[in-house]
Amino acid sequence: MTGSGRAPIVEARAIHKHFGHLHVLKGVDLAVAEKELVFLIGPSGSGKSTLLRCLNRLEDPSSGSVVVDGIDMLDPRTDINKARQRIGMVFQSFNLYPHMTALGNVALALRKVQGMGRAEAEAKARAALDRVHLADRADHYPLQLSGGQQQRVAIARAIALEPRVMLFDEPTSALDPELVGGVLAVMRELREDGMTMVVVSHEMGFAKAAADRVVFMSDGAIIEEGIPSEIFTNPSHERTRAFISQIERH
């Protein structure tokens, strides 16, 4: 069920997630093909973040399987720290390390996880900052950067590790409206460079312009999916229709 004929990079099957008595994911299947951009929408509490977090095992699914780039993420023998380098993640609240410069934020995992020396890591970190157009902010601390700049540094931190897939969890929701465009522009460029992406967001304009496929979730399950024009203009489920008209009123 991928949007193209290419082999899936992410393949999640029958994912269930319980938090105590709360059944948050109720058998979700999601496959993402190489270079595909999947856009994930749904009401608050429908389980979008939880699904993303199951893909890199920030949450352990209660059952199901997750295979990313051929690696079984749920196999206890899998070196999860090695596997996570292939899956970049960008968070709503940026989560930059406040005690490190932009450069330090990007270089940390290059040095500690990939074992590069300082010079090599910093050169690579600068290249990543350049890709998000912040080469001139390398020595700034997060507090000295705007929200949009912080989020772009966070993207650089993830892409510096050369992941096979990038997960975005509402990357622009915490930003002032005038700063959203810069972050979306960087995401567009990533996509044009062939990055595989799963994006949770309310930016419908971005979805229409850049997504290959839109997936609508509600109450812990995928209700329907399809190409953006189809989902946005002619959804087949009442719940999808209600959600989209509610979003578009904003």
Partner: peptide, 10 residues
């Protein structure tokens, strides 16, 4: 902070 660090493989 912890989640961001772990997501990069630390």
């Amino acid at each position: 902070q912890i989640e961001a660090a772990r997501s990069t493989g630390l």
